[in-house]
Design a protein around this nucleic acid. Structure first.
Lengths: 342, 342
DNA sequence: TATTTTTGTTCAATCGATTGAACAAATATA
DNA sequence: TATATTTGTTCAATCGATTGAACAAAAATA
């Protein structure tokens, strides 16, 4: 309750006997303002604890220096790490981010987009909810002239900048490794085929099986939301069938954890009887017993590159070409798939 | 790139042959505007896809309708659930939230506060970082006239609205239950004593031991950051000592998970040889083998009440009294502390 | 009919910062 | 000395919405 007054450029102008516009120019290092005045103004600004009014300058300049980030859920190391890195890069460039989560719900996602457009963010960096198939709201972002960058979950037809990993190749890494461990009957607990990244993982999985002349059984590709309960349910389902796989490739770590729980509860030796590989390198994968092999998606890089893609677009508004940055996945081999590490 | 034009009240006014101010008043249901005009204006607004310019109205009204939420980390069910509920309540009341995380770092926290004050949020709802002992930045929020509500981790001397649980009582629930299970040598993997909530848990633990005439061993109270590696390290330390506890009460679930891992790695039967209880009811506590007993902190309620405390303060700016809302903790008994459930 | 009240709208200032144009003073050039 | 150039500052409009005061027209009252 001490100094509620909040000083403005007017106050500074009054103290120094200048006009507000001179003060504004001095603070913005306008070339026509003398060094002496600039110095005096900046000192007075500090004296008066002056903070520029963000709203007024945003209004005048027509930009808010705010960037919205929409992620499916916050409670995931991958997404929170991406956001952290987006924030790091953008803060350095004078932007602040507004983080929102869709909870994997299309309706929530639309609402978040509306909110972000309402508060006039300069751009939106997003990863789409599992549910999302209708791209209308994303078209809306573009049609309003707001920049849009997608990462991880993004559709090509939107024709915007995208940062992700090579999901097709990830599956090859997984299958190649499992084959090298002697596995021949590899099942895939997959994400939904209507989402590009999961579709790519499925495609890579199929092609890799074919590459190694392994049989492709369609009831060994089971799509789901990849929550922990999905992993549990589907693993149980696989065990209930007459023929067991000798390896399971899960398109998400959380679901892989669920699968692992069921395997252990059934006293199945991992990896000896059934090997297991997840996806995303969530921290807990290194902490389970046995630890879970997984794919590193380079979340830090993704965040950094997504932020840089946004900045580049802001700085070159007339740029027409679209960037698609595809990072190389990395297989992290742990106990759940390697007899040697056991 | 279709309709970049973004219509304003001017456009509506031009279409209807009115002045911008009449349009503004019509949209805000001013009593002196005829119903006929109001209807026409509202229809035209829809026709032109008019969206009020948030920045200008915020500037004029002197409020942004934005609320900053600072949490130590996003990657925790407790905090993300609180945020979700804050958001739910505030969205209904026309506010949007900006979520930021301090990563438990004091420096980051200060920076986040500066950012939020810069973009002129109407209030800040925060839970303090583990590192924070200097309250200067929080004083700053108040002195700028921005509303402040704390939850979970908050200090009384700041004299602001607070929502949390009764941490002292939580420890009693834990100790009472452990005693009922026949435990007599209860250790406490604690949070730092300089943070009020952890201090309260320690105090409750001590008093509860005394209540049951159990010996209090000071080297069985070990403070830490409560990360997973802290739980592991301290559990190992307890096992390396000559006398083992027969129960361990951990002030955080993540650290409890680390402790559980070490117990299992050492083939110690949980709860028969050593019982274990965590804190916060993180989802994974029900998924481990054995599942971990823990304290439910009512994160949904905390979020809702914190948001409501903010709203009440905004609506009654002259209100002087401070609300301290203390919820009752609930002990969730699972396998790690109950021989019956094993 | 004259006067007051009510109703519907416009006028003009405002929020705080920004910016091109205008202007005056100082300095340089012809 | 007269003119052109540079320099430092002020003027005034602007971003879009809001709001109290002012005003004119319509309706109600005396």
């Amino acid at each position: 309750m001490e100094n509620k007054k909040k000083s403005t450029i007017k106050d500074i102008a009054a103290v120094l006997g200048l006009t507000p516009s001179a003060v504004s120019k001095a603070l913005n290092d306008h070339p026509r303002i003398s060094d002496k005045t600039k110095k005096a103004v900046k000192e007075a600004a500090i004296q008066l604890d002056y903070q520029p009014n963000y709203l007024s300058s945003a209004l005048r300049k027509g930009k808010s220096n705010l960037v919205g980030v929409i992620i499916p859920r916050v409670n995931s190391h991958f997404f929170s790490s991406v956001v952290e890195n987006i924030e790091k890069v953008l803060n350095l460039n004078g932007y602040n981010i507004i983080m929102t989560q869709s909870n994997e719900l299309y309706a929530k996602e639309c609402q978040e987009i509306d909110t972000l457009l309402k508060i006039q963010v300069d751009g939106i960096i997003a990863s789409m909810a599992n549910e999302t198939t209708d791209l209308e709201y994303y078209q809306k972002i573009k049609s309003k002239g707001t920049e849009l960058v997608l990462f991880d979950r993004g559709e090509e037809e939107l024709n915007v900048d995208y940062v992700g990993i090579d999901d097709y190749k990830s599956s090859h890494l997984v299958v190649d490794h499992l084959v090298s461990q002697g596995c021949k009957r590899i099942a895939h607990i997959a994400g939904f085929n209507h989402i590009r990244i999961y579709k790519e993982r499925i495609r890579g999985y199929k092609d890799a099986l074919e590459k190694w002349n392994l049989a492709l059984k369609y009831n060994w590709i089971i799509e789901s939301n990849l929550r922990i309960e999905d992993g549990r349910r589907i693993m149980q389902q696989l065990l209930d069938a007459p023929e067991w796989p000798d390896a399971v490739y899960v398109a998400g770590d959380i679901a892989a954890l669920g699968a692992l729980q069921v395997l252990l509860e059934n006293n199945i030796k991992v990896p000896e009887e059934i090997a297991l590989i997840g996806f995303s390198d969530e921290p807990f994968t290194s902490l389970t017993q046995p630890s879970i092999s997984t794919i590193n998606q380079h979340s830090d890089q993704i965040g950094k590159l997504a932020a840089e893609a946004f900045l580049e677009r802001i700085n070159n508004p007339k740029k027409k070409t679209v960037n698609r940055i595809i990072l190389q996945p990395e297989l992290i081999i742990r106990q759940s798939s390697s007899k040697l590490l056991k």
